[in-house]
Design a protein around this nucleic acid. Structure first.
Lengths: 207, 207
DNA sequence: CCGCATCCTCATGGATACTG
DNA sequence: CAGTATCCATGAGGATGCGG
């Protein structure tokens, strides 16, 4: 008779314990959505196309109970944000994403793409790149603006408070192609796929 | 009408694609078992206590179809081994394990422990430690012998072919306590919890 | 024995409707 | 908007069978 509502692997192993907590379906994708910043319930619902509303509610409750997500009552409504520990999932998630890059080669198919995902994908794929002095530029795709920064500590992405000095505008396909290595920066620049400061882009992607 | 047997998130995102492939229940734990080396079907079945036999068969088939696991017909029987790409899951799994270490603090409870899991846990937890000249020692718990090596590239563990020169014998609890940081090396040595070369142990855990 | 395949039961996931 | 409630489909868990 195990306590209902909890299915555990029953193993004294950090990986198994982690999977007990974030191994359920949709859970890590919810965390991925929250990595760039807090989101509302309905934002999550639409971003994670296909998730059932009861599942989203249950996962959020579970994540909150486990100290991974914080539920905040803002004046605008209810906001969900990662706790510091929850934000620590960035590392393993980036690593898993890097491992899975070959799986993107099979083509996009009917799969949906959201620019927000680039905030995790771009730093993960550029891991190891450094730059001094730091390079910072905005990338705007599909109306979503993210800031990509590379310094001595490596690349990082965030949602900027104010518009960065240099902003590149591109269709998602091109950014994805760059991120997956399907095309090079030089090819993108030569094709005129970007509007903005090409030198900053070159510096960023060249590390 | 999606192809039956496959449930996908339908997202063009490396993380989501990865989870499509290794996100199902038990899958990553199967990979964890195979990280130290190939295993037989029944070995997996008993190591992963609680997994249903049909699930194990299905997961192995899926892992093989995705190029993560190789099925080998050996004279002794059927062996399952990781492909090079499958072995690349070590990094994300170690990262997730490191993130989940705080979850071990809640105590062991009824959870089972298998010494083989230390081959992933110990290097993950000692990540960052280096040693030159290299340090190598055997750790034996519950009759399972593993080799822990630390060199300029950091810590790594494996199942040794022949018995290492220095072998420490300890009950699993002590190794786990060391690995989780519950006790220090000095405390373990002072309590006489180990038989073997204490200096090698100190060198290994002190980096 | 080993390496699964089959069958059955019940927990979990998914789609939709509804509500404070 | 932010969920709850409901119902159905699917997957997990456990026992057993069965050929090599």
């Amino acid at each position: 008779m195990v306590e209902k509502g909890k299915r555990s692997y029953g193993q004294f192993c950090a990986l198994a314990r982690s999977l007990d907590v974030v191994g359920d379906r949709w859970t890590l994708l919810i965390v991925r959505e929250l990595l760039p910043g807090p989101m509302r319930y309905t934002e999550l619902k639409t971003a994670l196309d296909g998730i059932a509303t009861n599942l989203l509610a249950e996962r959020l409750k579970s994540l909150e109970a486990n100290g991974i997500v914080e539920r905040r009552l803002e004046d605008a409504g209810v906001g969900y944000a990662l706790t510091p520990w929850g934000a620590g999932l960035r590392e393993p998630m980036e690593a898993l994403g890097r491992w899975g890059v070959p799986l993107l080669a099979t083509g996009q198919g009917d799969d949906v793409f959201r620019p927000r995902w680039l905030t995790m994908a771009l730093p993960a794929l550029m891991r190891g790149a450094t730059a001094s002095p730091p390079v910072e530029l905005g990338i705007e795709t599909d109306g979503f603006l993210l800031s990509l920064r590379i310094d001595e500590n490596g690349p990082s992405a965030s949602v900027p408070d104010q518009r960065p000095a240099s902003v590149l505008t591109a269709v998602p396909d091109v950014v994805v192609a760059l991120a997956t290595g399907a095309i090079t920066v030089e090819q993108a620049l030569a094709a005129g796929e970007f509007e903005g400061d090409a030198n900053v882009l070159r510096a960023a992607f060249a590390g």
